[in-house]
Amino acid sequence: MNRIKQKLQEDPSKKLLSIYFTAGYPQPEDTVTILEELQKSGVDMVEIGLPFSDPLADGPVIQRSSEAALKNGMTTNKLFAQLKNIRETVQIPLLIMGYFNPILQFGVEKFCQKCKEVGIDGLIIPDLPVEEYELQYKDIFQQYDLLPVFLITPQTSEERIRQIDQISEGFIYMVSSAAVTGGTAGFGQLQKDYFSRVSKMGLKNPLIVGFGIKDRETFSAATEKTKGAIIGSAFIKHLTENGTENIQDFIRKARD
């Protein structure tokens, strides 16, 4: 069974913490260390960011980490090489999150095949819309047992949320507010209403919230009505300041 599905079913009451980081940052060869540390810290799931020159849904923190990773010489091939033996030490679900162009250049089928080989469980491609996915890529994803994860936002209509729910497998990535990644405003009534409104829709996929989650307070606010939350920019800031040191401290502070 796909590790994401398994994780989502394990303990119905448990709120999941997922972490995003950019592969190849801060140092080109940090990927495996970061993954192992995250697993040790009790993180439930990880999104490995494939760096891109033009990350148009990302705020400054992830932009800069992508830029630095590319300067470090990070490539798609290098990422797969780093992940070659990852399943010997890391058992939690792993997803790759990346923009579509590098995947398209690598070859979508070849990319999916490589993902399967190294043990990736799902893909988040923010600029691959559900329509294009269904039309051209659904069969390939299924062939390699990769769960497609799609985003919804506070502006997404109920009808479209239901459409996305039908196509999604695993979970729905719930973007917390109308903003690029790395927002620091915290959650107000608007967000709480949105979390509550969507959670009452009776969707088949659980909701995991991302964008603007940075600490214990935002994590618990985001997961009150949902299955889990994703920390990205705040974790990257931690890596910028500490390298791969003290990852367990960061996670403990975010969750317990």
Partner: peptide, 11 residues
């Protein structure tokens, strides 16, 4: 052509 946009821009 097409519209390869993040969901945030969809509406």
């Amino acid at each position: 052509g097409g519209a390869f946009i993040p969901e945030m821009l969809y509406p």
